[in-house]
Simulated scan of single mutants.
Amino acid sequence: MLRPTVLFLFLACAVSLSRSAVVLENGMPILWAQTAGQVTDLPIQNGIVTPDPWNFLHRMSLYRLMIAATDPFMGSMGTGTGENPMWGLTVQLGWFLTSGRLADPTGATTCGLQTGDTMCVSTQSWWSCVSYLVSALPFLSAAQQGFLGEGVQVQMQVPEGVEDYCTTYADCTTRYPDAMAKWDAYFTGLKTSAESALPENEKKDSILGLYWAAQMASIYSASACNAKMSSYSSPEVTFVNSWLNSAEYVSAANFHSTLEKSSKFSIPLPSRVLQEGDSPPNIADLSQEENHTLSVFSWMKNMNSLLGGSLVRMWRSAMCSATTREKGREMLEQLMLNPSFATSTFLSIISGMTTSC
């Protein structure tokens, strides 16, 4: 349990050869079988659960345990086993790993590199910093709300000398009050929804709304990670900013981040950290799909900037009902996965949807 296998080396080679993101293994997130199946599989010291989120398997375990704990409240999501919206974060974490984004970008250590500990998650990585905010924070909230068992207490491990990460519910609530409050609202909302007499589609929309409000609050807290961007190339920093911008559209549409859909959206993401000189859509060692994704992300970010932020505001305005949010999710899928879907079409549809609200 919690032991990496040679699979990671195979996956890393597959990434370097195929240049497409590897996010699943036998239909499940990468190394899923190696993660903790129950809370007691994690380290426990003096009666306190002490996961090490700087180890990939531990960080992925946080998601596995939260998904298992919340699945009983997910009846409105659908009948499949991959309907829990938190599956999206597991797939995202797998992409972070195989694309090298959890590794130390400073070159000071071999953390996360093939020449070092491949399961190491670097405290210096911007991507792992953001990932911490959408893994450790919800896990601490879930424990506080009783989803992990009666009276379960949690304290995250942190490398010696590292002080810029919160480790307990109280600590994280002090540092990130809005994010923790919204994760609390999400977990308590699951219990409320289970007892609600609302139609299933309305329950689903409500749960997804609470989920994305919490996830975006964590992402907005990523300003605490900004100093770590200095270790990356300008193309990677540009991608970081456009990736953050894309989250505005996904969240406003209450995207149902199932295991299947999240995998489709992750496969076209860049399978390596971008370097100086990389210029989409003409990065030779990335696939056509990856180049397309980078171009779309860049277009959305640049267009929003040119319009003074009004593109995001228009999109949010258009996502005014469960019906338009459903249409929005379909349109995002076309934009990201269908190269023939013109960006001009995207703009005209948004305008039309906005006037219907």
Rank of each mutant, 00 (worst) to 15 (best):
L89S: 10
L89E: 05
L89A: 11
T90A: 15
T90L: 03
V91I: 15
V91L: 12
Q92A: 12
Q92H: 14
Q92M: 13
Q92I: 04
Q92F: 14
Q92R: 08
G94Y: 09
G94W: 13
G94F: 12
G94Q: 11
G94R: 10
W95V: 10
W95M: 05
W95F: 10
W95I: 12
F96L: 13
L97C: 01
T98E: 04
T98V: 14
T98F: 00
T98D: 01
S99K: 05
S99N: 02
S99R: 02
G100I: 01
R101M: 09
R101I: 00
R101C: 01
R101T: 01
L102N: 04
L102W: 00
A103G: 10
A103K: 09
A103V: 06
D104K: 10
D104H: 12
D104C: 09
P105V: 06
P105A: 09
P105G: 10
T106F: 11
T106S: 15
T106V: 08
G107Y: 10
G107H: 12
A108Q: 14
A108R: 15
A108I: 11
T109M: 10
T109Q: 08
T109C: 06
T109N: 13
T110L: 14
C111G: 04
C111D: 06
C111M: 13
C111R: 07
C111N: 05
C111P: 02
C111F: 06
G112A: 06
G112Y: 03
G112S: 08
L113R: 15
L113Q: 13
L113T: 15
Q114G: 14
Q114D: 11
Q114Y: 12
T115N: 14
T115H: 07
T115R: 15
T115F: 09
T115E: 15
D117F: 09
D117W: 05
D117E: 13
D117V: 08
T118L: 13
T118K: 05
T118R: 06
T118D: 07
T118N: 02
T118Q: 10
